[in-house]
């Protein structure tokens, strides 16, 4: 989202209350959405639930192309469209809903740093496994990604996406990594998160923040998604406090009337 648009949105946003019909768009949940997109989408949903802002989830095959930044998920609130967790957090803040107001300066800095840790290690590892691991790409990622498109568009778009991800991996120095090194990075990231969390209910003690939403989105998705091997989930399962952290957020924020929705939404890739 561009800066000018962002400034505009936050000005407008301040005056209008949160509408009832806010909608979150994501790809089709049963046979299209990928692990990484699902994680991001779940993080946004968790964040909005923590803020007690109602949102309906709508699945669209072309969600990626509807989004202003080309990334899913995005929310449609009143007459504004905002994509990705970072801008959405700012957007809700402009409307007067914030989870991190109670933190002091140092804690805010730490929260931002840990959010970058999740984005740069967990998210990148997910993308690597989805697109750069030949087995996973062939059996899961490419067929799912190209479901809505007819031949030959399905091959072209999937190939294009894979090429894009691979180039990005090259730019950040991940291209030379083996799959084991990537799992090792995931372990390292989980270990850092686990140590930071310790025995607290949330990362910054009693109150959840956007960091909790982000971590929950990724870890819960990794734990509940079936890939070609369960090595990724196994890495997360080594940390018992992270597991109970996920269960806690699931129970507190997704446990009410539609507990089925979260389980149902996460369709195992089979």
């Amino acid at each position: 989202m561009s800066l000018a648009a962002e400034a505009f949105v936050s000005q407008i946003a301040a005056v209008e209350p949160w509408p009832e019909n806010a909608t979150l768009y994501q790809p089709l949940k049963d046979d299209q959405i990928l692990l990484s997109d699902h994680a991001s989408s779940l993080a946004v949903q968790a964040y909005l639930r923590m803020c007690t802002l109602p949102v309906q989830v709508a699945c669209r095959a072309n969600a990626e192309y509807m989004s202003p930044s080309g990334k899913v998920p995005f929310i449609h609130v009143g007459n504004q469209v905002v994509s990705e967790l970072g801008p959405i957090v700012q957007f809700t803040k402009a409307k007067g809903h914030s989870l991190s107001d109670g933190l002091n300066e140092v804690q805010k800095a730490e929260m931002k740093a840990y959010m970058e840790l999740v984005n740069s290690m967990l998210l990148t590892a997910e993308l690597y496994i989805l697109w750069c691991d030949e087995n996973t790409a062939k059996q899961i990622t490419v067929p799912r990604y190209s479901t809505p498109y007819p031949w030959p568009l399905n091959h072209i778009l999937a190939y294009q996406k894979q090429w894009e991800v691979k180039r990005k991996m090259k730019a950040i120095g991940w291209a030379g990594k083996t799959i084991d090194q990537v799992y090792e990075d995931v372990s390292q990231c989980c270990q850092a998160l686990s140590q930071r969390l310790g025995t607290q209910p949330y990362f910054f003690n009693k109150q959840p923040t956007e960091l909790d939403a982000l971590v929950f989105g990724h870890l819960f998705t990794i734990l509940t998604t079936e890939l070609t091997s369960d090595a990724l989930a196994e890495r997360v399962k080594n940390y018992s406090n992270l597991l109970s952290f996920c269960q806690r957020i699931e129970k507190n924020y997704f446990g009410d009337n539609d507990s089925s929705s979260i389980v149902g939404r996460i369709s195992p890739f089979s």
């Binding site: 931002k112 840790l117 740069s120």
Partner: peptide, 10 residues
């Protein structure tokens, strides 16, 4: 140690 990793990523 965890903070180190997080701030380096940041």
């Amino acid at each position: 140690g965890a903070d180190t990793l997080a701030f380096i990523c940041l």
